[in-house]
Design a protein around this nucleic acid. Structure first.
Lengths: 341, 341
DNA sequence: ATGAAAGCGCTAACAG
DNA sequence: CTGTTAGCGCTTTCAT
């Protein structure tokens, strides 16, 4: 009987037809997928863990791009994609335990996230995205630090020395405001930590004392947050010539805030982002483009090609500095050029 | 032992701690979620079926909004969200059979979709979205027909009588071109069928012979498709004063095509959409806004509140006509006003 | 408080 | 080609 459903070749088409019809007549709804999974040890689905509320994944363009790539990979393999609810506010790890999946993709969670720990305890393959290397776990990501260093050098070349930074959440606790040097270095989000480190390195090399550079953090990753953070930086130090944001979303907010203050970009203020989302491209934002879709697809492939036993594997994708229209030499530098030092 | 994991209250904390520690030391990875699901008859996840390739869900803003709402509802209930791969090109229904879920949400698939049939055969609750009423199945949607009639009347009031229509896929087969009257009426996608019917009704009432109105269909739902469809309509009948698109995405393409041809909107050509996505709002598109997020959330709630036994339940959400800047009286009508009839 | 045992529905292996 | 059976890992019930 099981054969009628799963091995059409093992019996005559006629018999198969008869069996199936009888089954239907008896009200048999077809094999129970859960029982089958238990027996075959295959769930037919990939689990996705992300740090934010589930719905956030659909609000952030970068996350959407990642999901699209991951979905593509799952689709090719005929696998489902299970979004695992992991509320960062609560510590409810149960959802991770209950997920019937053949493997996990973990997308940009803090190092100390209990959900991540729960995933790693499960005896299924896992791919980490935008995380530091972890022993025995596959990884895909970009070189956040190098990319940010390149962007910083671009600004330095333009003449910027007095800059401010707006960054995303650095740890699980909410800290909407200035970031101490210590907090920067101990940030739990690998991506943010690396980007800040890249900035610090480039500016230190250029003779700027990084301790003097104001860095403002926002817990919520929204355009409004970017705007308010930009306001906070500009309030404290109006002489800043460039506002470096660690994401395009935040940069979009900074642009809005600059506009609100009557500051022309890039003449009065340079603004930069990170990610290369479509909305940023449309604004002409100077930013770093990273291949979010490819990242998702690579993560999925890595997970589903677990045939290769050469674990752990690590994939680092290339980024590209986008010289948009929101970065230019600072006013003072331009003036110096005209009037001499 | 099972109690240690699931009933912390049934035994002393001390014992629980000891049991768990011993288990860990023995390399026990925690209860197997699939086996648990089999036993408890709960998968802890909601399945989502959509007609398109899985990754499409992340490219269409309306679908993303719906997903966000659905994810919100799942999150609240601590349920996972399983995206079921259902390639519309293939007839591979297996993924539906294999999905370990407690219920399905079906989002805008054609009436005759085999995946939909497979879902309905499964003995789990189901919520249909943007589908015609089906006996014994919960439903959530909008009144597509009435909304489109309202939009059409708005155009008629402005003076438009010679219009063209660009619509989405009407059935599972690809038909990039003109749509016969017969195909319009037998369209397998409830949403498109209703919207066309709403248009036909309004224009017929206004004395326009609907048979004369060119309707062009596109299989792919992209801005490029909208542009090429618009071109096709304008090519055949340059005297058209308004281009009615059954989605904002298509309308965005139509706007681009109008621009390419040097037609000013709305002076030379009126263009309208449907859905009310953010990109449309930014373009000032005249359209119908529907609450996509609410639709997703309502679908999730309906599914998860299966406590209420008064099935089938039906939820119809309100829509709103958005009078944007892409609709105005047609040239001829305006001329008549200036120079007299 | 603890241990033993039944059985969820299926598939794979094997016997007829 | 067909029928039978063991057991996947868990939870629940019942007995100790």
């Amino acid at each position: 009987m099981s054969n009628a459903y799963n091995r059409p070749d093992q019996l005559s088409p006629e018999l198969r037809r008869r069996v199936l019809e009888t089954a239907r007549r008896l009200g048999y709804p077809g094999p129970d997928p859960v029982a089958r999974s238990l027996r075959t040890r295959k769930a037919g689905a990939v689990g996705l863990l992300l740090t934010e509320n589930l719905s956030y994944a659909f609000r952030d363009p970068a996350a959407v791009g990642f999901l699209e790539g991951l979905a593509l990979a799952c689709e090719d393999a005929g696998q489902g994609l299970l979004l695992v609810p992991a509320n960062p506010e609560r510590e409810d790890v149960a959802a991770v335990h209950r997920a019937g999946v053949d493997g996990f993709v973990v997308y940009s969670v803090p190092d100390d996230d209990p959900h991540l720990a729960a995933v790693l305890e499960r005896p299924v393959p896992t791919v980490l995205c935008d995380q530091p290397d972890l022993e025995d776990v596959d990884r895909v990501g970009i070189d956040d630090r190098a990319a940010m260093t390149e962007l910083a050098r671009h600004l330095i070349e333009l003449g910027h020395r007095r800059v401010g930074v707006v960054c995303m959440r650095l740890a699980r606790d909410r800290n909407d405001g200035y970031v101490s040097h210590e907090r920067q270095q101990s940030a739990r989000f690998h991506v943010q930590r690396s980007r800040l480190a890249g900035l610090a390195q480039a500016f230190t090399e250029a003779g700027v004392d990084w301790q003097d550079v104001p860095v403002v953090e926002r817990f919520d990753h929204t355009i409004a947050s970017g705007a308010s953070a930009a306001a906070q930086v500009l309030e404290r130090d109006p002489r800043i010539t460039a506002l470096i944001c660690t994401s395009d979303i935040l940069a979009l907010g900074a642009l809005a805030e600059a506009d609100r203050r009557g500051l022309r970009v890039p003449q009065d203020l340079t603004v930069t982002g990170f990610d290369g989302i479509r909305e940023a491209e449309q604004s002409g934002l100077t930013t770093v483009r990273q291949p979010v879709l490819e990242k998702g697809r690579a993560a999925g492939k890595l997970l589903l090609d677990s045939a290769e036993r050469t674990r752990p594997r690590s994939v680092t994708l290339a980024t590209e500095l986008i010289r948009g229209t929101t970065a230019a030499p600072p006013r003072s530098a331009a003036d110096e050029r005209w009037f001499g030092p």
